[in-house]
Amino acid sequence: MSATGIASGFSVEPIGFADGLDALRHVRDAVFVQEQGVPVEIERDALDPLCRHVIARDAQGQPIGTGRLTPDRRIGRMAVLADWRNRGVGEGLLKALLAQARELHWPEVTLHAQVRAQAFYARQGFLPYGERFVEAGLDHQSMRLLLDAVNPVESREAGLAALLGVLDGARRQALVYTRDLDPGLFDRPEALAALRRFAVGGGEVRILLQDPAAPQRAIAPLLGLAQRLTTAFALRAIEEPVDRDYPSAYVVNDRGGWYFRPLGHRFDGETRLDGDARARQLRAHFEPVWERARPCSEYRALGL
Results as ranks from 00 to 15, higher is better:
Arg74Ser: 10
Ile75Asp: 01
Asp48His: 12
Thr66Tyr: 01
Ile64His: 02
Ile64Phe: 08
Arg74Leu: 15
Ala59His: 15
Arg85Gly: 14
Asn86Ser: 14
Val40Cys: 13
Gly92Pro: 00
Gly90Ser: 05
Ala59Pro: 08
Ala79Leu: 02
Asp58Trp: 12
Glu43Lys: 12
Arg57Trp: 07
Pro71Asn: 15
Ala59Tyr: 06
Asn86Val: 04
Arg57Asn: 15
Val89Asp: 00
Gly92Asp: 00
Gln62Gly: 14
Gly76Val: 04
Gly90Ala: 03
Leu81Thr: 07
Ala59Met: 15
Arg73Ala: 07
Glu91His: 08
Leu69Glu: 04
Pro63Asp: 08
Gly90Ile: 00
Pro49Glu: 07
Leu93Ile: 02
Val38Cys: 04
Leu69Val: 06
Ala82Phe: 04
Ile42Met: 15
Trp84Lys: 03
Ala46Pro: 12
Asp45Cys: 14
Gly92Met: 01
Leu50Asn: 09
Pro63Glu: 14
Ile42Ser: 13
Leu50Cys: 05
Ile64Met: 08
Gln62Pro: 11
Pro63Gln: 10
Leu81Ala: 03
Val89Met: 02
Pro71Lys: 07
Pro63His: 08
Ile64Leu: 07
Ile64Glu: 01
Arg87Leu: 08
Thr70Ser: 11
Gln60Asn: 12
Pro49Phe: 07
Pro71Tyr: 14
Leu81Lys: 05
Arg74Met: 12
Asp45Ser: 10
Pro71Ser: 11
Pro49Arg: 11
Gln60Cys: 12
Val54Trp: 04
Gly88Ala: 03
Thr66Asp: 03
Glu91Tyr: 05
Ala46Arg: 09
Cys51Arg: 10
Thr66Met: 03
Val89Gly: 00
Ile55Asn: 04
Gln62Lys: 13
Cys51Asn: 10
Arg87Pro: 02
Glu43Ile: 09
Met78Thr: 08
Val80Thr: 07
Arg73His: 14
Arg77Trp: 01
Pro49Val: 06
Leu93Asn: 00
Ile42Asp: 10
Arg87Gln: 08
Asp45Ile: 07
Gly88Val: 01
Gly67Asn: 06
Asp72Asn: 14
Ala56His: 02
Cys51Lys: 10
Trp84Phe: 06
Ala82Gly: 09
Gln62Thr: 09
Gly88Cys: 02
Val54His: 04
Glu91Gly: 06
Gly92Trp: 01
Arg73Lys: 09
Ala79Arg: 01
Ala56Leu: 08
Arg77Cys: 03
Glu91Ile: 02
Gly90Gln: 01
Gly67Gln: 03
Asp83Val: 13
Glu91Asp: 13
Asp48Thr: 08
Asp48Met: 11
